[in-house]
């Protein structure tokens, strides 16, 4: 994948992340590589697969103690590992937006929704309070909130989970980012709301020509909303494939994940379980 950083938003080559434990280091990510343009990329894996750590490493949001090494870890040409803290600040919440799982914990409970969005807008745009408020209103309209004027003055505890997630998205869109990282954006939501939110993210991403990194444990869901899927297991990439070819996935892990889900259309007395094969993991130092 060398020489492809032209037009590539994200380039990751041989990324390794280790966390200290009492007796040395735990390898959370063990040498993964992929790149991302202005497209929708899904990163799928079970808990502990290192998918969230990968997203956070790109924004340099990991705890101090974590050891991050990579041959290349670049966002639009900027070397994330070598960038100054100031450069990183303009990336985080500026050129890269992060949407997390539960809006309940990522919105400030004592600040009105309108002010939070306005703050986010002011942090990366020039303008006065009035303009910020107008911008907030238009952002709430863009995330298809009915009655945005009322929501502007409400507080996070007064809105539902789905609405909270829309507000979160509006905040992330305020600085007009190039890349949206959505880390399990809908796991805390009902299935009906889940579909709406993902549709919204999908529309916004294609309208604005952003890149999307959708991190999730839900393989079918990711396949429906993304162009490409990277399947991770135990800190390594098992397989990378176009989303529409998911049902033709070749790797035993991907196949196993798809197969072990109960299905509404097919009745099975027992569910096949996943036999984890040690050979899936390439030997790495």
């Amino acid at each position: 994948m060398s020489g492809m950083n032209n037009g590539k938003l994200v380039e990751i080559r041989d990324l390794r992340v280790d966390f200290p434990n009492p007796s040395g280091f735990t390898q959370a990510v063990r040498g993964i590589s992929f790149s991302l343009g202005r497209e929708k990329l899904g990163i799928v894996g079970e808990s502990g697969s290192g998918k969230s750590v990968t997203g956070r490493a790109l924004m340099r949001l990991l705890p101090q103690a974590a050891r991050v090494r990579a041959e290349a870890l670049r966002f639009d040409g900027v070397d994330v590992l070598a960038a100054s803290e100031q450069q990183m600040r303009s990336l985080r919440g500026g050129r890269i937006g992060l949407i997390m799982q539960d809006p309940k914990y990522s919105l400030n409970p004592v600040m009105s929704v309108g002010r939070q969005i306005a703050e986010a807008w002011l942090a990366h745009n020039k303008g006065g309070r009035r303009e910020a408020r107008d911008a907030a209103l238009s952002l709430l309209e863009q995330v298809k909130i009915r009655d945005p004027r009322r929501v502007l003055d409400s507080y996070p505890h007064e809105v539902s989970g789905g609405m909270g997630q829309r507000i979160m998205i509006a905040m992330m869109l305020a600085p007009n980012p190039d890349l949206l990282i959505a880390d399990e954006p809908t796991s805390a939501l009902d299935a009906s709301v889940q579909a709406e939110i993902l549709k919204l993210i999908e529309d916004l991403v294609s309208e604005r020509g952003m890149g999307l990194m959708l991190i999730s444990h839900d393989l079918p869901l990711v396949a429906r909303f993304c162009d490409r899927v990277v399947v991770m297991y135990a800190g390594q990439v098992m397989e990378e494939l176009p989303a529409r070819d998911l049902h033709r996935a070749s790797h035993a892990y991907t196949r196993g994940l798809l197969d072990c889900m109960p299905s509404l259309s097919r009745k099975r007395a027992r569910l096949p379980t996943l036999n984890r094969d040690a050979a899936w993991l390439e030997p790495h130092a």
Partner: peptide, 14 residues
């Protein structure tokens, strides 16, 4: 739970 673990637990329950 993860889907692979879910399958194991569902089998156990049945």
């Amino acid at each position: 739970l993860d889907v692979s673990v879910q399958a194991e637990v569902l089998n156990l329950l049945s």
